[in-house]
C-alpha cells in the first residue's frame, strides 16, 4: 500500500496540514489501522525531498509549527502513473485496489480504466499458471489451482466493483 501516492492524491483537492492528511487517510483508508504520526511525517519529508510536494505555508501553533503541504506538478504525474499502472497480482491486494478506486473517484479520474488494466494483469498471470498446469504433474497443478482460485476471487471483486462504480462515485463525491 503506497501511503505517499495516496497523500499526493488527497493533496490534489488543495493544500493540507500533515494532521489533516492523517485524519482523512485514517477515515477513508485506515480500516481500523490508523497511521502513526512518524509514518505521516516521514512520508511527507520524503515527498518533499523528491519534489512531489512543496511547503505551502508554515503557521506557528501552541506546539510545533504547523506546515501546510501542496502537491507539485511532478506529484500529480506520480499519482497519475500509480493509478494507471496495474498492481502485481497477489492474494489480498484488495486494500490497495480499494484505495486506488476511491482515489480515482475522488480526483475525477477513470476508475473503470484502472479496473480494466488490473483485470488484464490478473488474466496475464492466470494464463501463465494455466500453461504451467498443462506441463506439470498433479502436485504442481494443485499449487497453480490454489493461486488461480485466489486470482479468480480478485477478478470477481473487480467485476462487481466495476458494476457498482456509478453508485460508488455518487457516495464518494457526496
Amino acid at each position: 500500500m503506497s501511503i505517499g501516492q495516496t497523500f499526493l492524491g488527497l493533496l490534489e483537492s488543495g493544500p493540507r496540514h500533515g494532521y489533516d492528511l492523517k485524519k482523512t487517510y485514517d477515515d477513508r483508508f485506515g480500516h481500523a489501522r490508523p497511521l502513526h504520526y512518524g509514518q505521516v511525517y516521514a512520508t511527507l519529508s520524503r515527498l518533499l525531498k523528491d519534489g512531489l510536494v512543496e511547503l505551502d505555508g508554515v503557521e506557528p501553533g501552541e506546539g510545533p509549527e504547523r506546515k501546510r503541504y501542496a502537491v507539485t506538478s511532478a506529484g500529480v504525474s506520480d499519482v497519475e502513473l500509480w493509478l494507471a499502472s496495474a498492481e502485481k497480482p497477489e492474494p489480498y491486494l484488495q486494500n490497495t485496489l480499494y484505495t486506488k478506486v476511491i482515489l480515482a473517484l475522488l480526483t475525477g479520474r477513470s476508475a473503470a480504466d484502472l479496473l480494466d488494466v488490473q483485470r488484464a494483469e490478473h488474466l496475464r498471470l492466470m494464463r501463465e499458471l494455466t500453461r504451467r498446469k498443462a506441463g506439470g504433474d498433479l502436485a504442481d497443478n494443485l499449487v497453480c489451482d490454489h493461486a488461480l482460485f485466489h486470482l479468480d476471487a480478485d477478478l470477481r471483486w473487480l467485476e462487481l466493483t466495476a458494476a457498482r462504480l456509478d453508485d460508488l462515485r455518487r457516495q464518494v463525491r457526496a
Binding site: A86, R119, M126, T130, D152, R156
Partner: peptide
C-alpha cells in the same frame, strides 16, 4: 465466458461493456 479461469486458456481477451469492445492488453 464470464469466468476468468476459463479465459486463462485463451491467448488474449477482449472486454465487452455496454456493447463496446476494449483490448486492454494491446492498449497497455
Amino acid at each position: 465466458t464470464h469466468e476468468a479461469r476459463v479465459a486463462g486458456y485463451s491467448d488474449r481477451e477482449i472486454v465487452v461493456r455496454d456493447g463496446r469492445t476494449r483490448d486492454i492488453a494491446r492498449e497497455m
